[in-house]
């Protein structure tokens, strides 16, 4: 899941300060699950913005709407009725959603209300952690299902470095040493021999090193 968190209110307020009618659009996918941009957060932000403007003596019309998914044109189309009545669109989706709105509604400023963070998993209620860096060349099969690219602070592919203590990364006791986890997992799987293999220098092209990436499924693409 893509995770995100709300930008500081001040930054959002500044970005929409010059508009009188704002269409605030949430997304019912990933950002709902990570409590950043679902109906509830849309409601909270609308309230907060409204109050901020009221405080400044300004009256702003905020229309709330939450789409099933902001990164699909068909869902985004749903907004066409509402966009006319707005001076700007404030999106509570990930960067993909924001860009999809901007692509579809070319004459409206589309502003992000969230900072898109990472692809992560939910550790427990209310806690999400980075799990995948989208590097385009998955090595999880030889690292015991734990990604050194996303989860090692130094992206070390032949770890661990010399800084880990008690299974924790040198940068913080709150961060697990990915290589410690990998090693434990490989041990449990009886695959410690996989560790001995030196992983070659990584080809970063699939990770975006070669520019924006596109996936085309020939059989599905029209």
């Amino acid at each position: 899941m893509i995770t995100a968190e709300r930008k500081p209110l001040e930054e959002i307020v500044e970005s929409v300060a010059s508009f009188d009618r704002i269409l605030l659009v949430g997304c019912n996918e990933c950002v709902t699950v990570c409590a950043a941009g679902g109906r509830k957060e849309v409601g909270l932000l609308a309230s907060a913005l409204n109050m901020t403007f009221l405080k400044g003596g300004k009256s702003v019309q905020i229309t709330e709407h939450t789409l099933e998914r902001q990164c699909d044109p068909e869902y985004v189309e749903e907004l066409s009725q509402l966009v006319g009545g707005a001076d700007a669109i404030l999106s509570m989706a990930c960067g993909a959603g924001v860009q999809e709105l901007a692509r579809r509604y070319k004459d409206k400023p589309v502003l992000p209300a969230l900072n898109t963070m990472f692809m992560g998993a939910s550790e427990r209620a209310g806690v999400w952690s980075e799990r995948c860096a989208g590097c385009g060349n998955c090595v999880l099969g030889i690292t015991g299902g734990i990604c050194p690219i996303a989860r090692c602070s130094k992206r070390i592919m032949n770890g661990p470095c010399g800084g880990s203590t008690n299974g924790k990364c040198e940068i913080s006791d709150d961060v697990d040493c990915a290589w410690h986890l990998i090693w434990e997992r490989l041990k449990a799987l009886g695959q410690t021999d996989l560790y001995e293999v030196n992983m070659d220098a990584k080809d970063w092209r699939p990770a975006g090193g070669a520019g924006p990436r596109t996936i085309v499924r020939e059989d599905l693409a029209e």
């Binding site: 130094k154 992206r155 070390i156 030196n198 220098a201």
Partner: peptide, 12 residues
């Protein structure tokens, strides 16, 4: 935090 290579890859 560049880490294009890790130290092992660097040695190689």
């Amino acid at each position: 935090n560049v880490h294009d290579l890790d130290s092992v890859q660097f040695l190689r």
